[in-house]
């Protein structure tokens, strides 16, 4: 039999508690068990008042971003075993807590909507009604950035106030870059203007927290710097 492990979980119901408390649960881990499955075990058998978000349990829906042993990760793909006997689970840092591990994502979605997060095209699609052509190498240019699941792990890890109104933050900028790098997109200068301010790419200090904490290993900082180059060049040449 494996040794039991201690899960210490951040608990807070803002309606009742003025400050968070940390509650420790001892569980008997099963082989291959993930943090998410441990949370379900606690919810179903130990403490039914626990709150967390999850759905796909396969690292694709982006619901279950949490701060686990000091790092932002997806609870559903994080195995218990490598984390040791004492595991601390907290909500994503810097975002307001709705309850326990559930954070208020509304400011995140507002920022997402700000960068016109959709393909902008000026030219009509082909008269045949068929697809626009895109070469395999052109399609490859967006390979990493289309993988973003908007889990906000990077957003909440950024030390530059991604959670304040002053900065769009890495996730939203990565979304903008997904379109900037797409050869089909014609939003060019217009989208760059949206991200080309102190509120956007200029604020990134290349600390790489976002890239390091991204569960999908998207080179977010690279995308931000690519846009920064375009923005700075635009400003230098008077085009922006």
């Amino acid at each position: 039999m494996t040794d039991s492990i201690k899960l210490t979980i951040y608990r807070r119901d803002p309606d009742l508690d003025t400050a968070p408390k940390y509650q420790t649960y001892e569980i008997q881990p099963e082989p291959g068990q993930t943090v998410l499955m441990a949370l379900y075990h606690i919810l179903e058998n130990v403490d039914k008042s626990l709150a967390f978000r999850a759905s796909c349990r396969s690292a694709v829906c982006g619901s279950c971003g949490m701060h686990i042993n000091g790092k932002n990760r997806l609870a559903c793909e994080t195995q218990l075993a490598p984390l040791g006997n004492e595991i601390c689970i907290e909500p994503l840092p810097h975002l307001p807590v709705l309850k326990d591990l559930v954070v208020d994502m509304s400011s995140f979605w507002r920022k997402y909507e700000k960068v016109r997060p959709y393909l902008i095209t000026l030219k009509e699609p082909p008269a045949s009604g068929k697809e626009r052509l895109q070469s395999i190498p052109d399609r490859k240019k967006i390979d990493d950035f289309i993988d973003c699941i908007l889990c906000a792990c990077c957003h909440s890890a950024c030390t530059l106030d991604a959670w304040s109104d002053g900065y769009l933050g890495p996730a939203v900028l990565a979304k903008a870059y997904r379109f900037v790098a797409d050869t089909r997109d014609e939003g060019g200068a217009e989208r760059l203007k949206l991200v080309g301010s102190e509120e956007g790419v200029l604020r990134c200090h290349t600390i790489f927290n976002c890239t390091e904490e991204c569960p999908k290993r998207i080179p977010i900082t690279f995308g931000i710097q690519e846009m920064k180059k375009k923005v700075v060049w635009g400003k230098l040449t008077g085009k922006m």
Partner: peptide, 12 residues
């Protein structure tokens, strides 16, 4: 019966 009685995000 439902054990959890809180209002916000009551998964139970």
């Amino acid at each position: 019966g439902v054990d959890a009685k809180h209002r916000k995000f009551n998964l139970d």
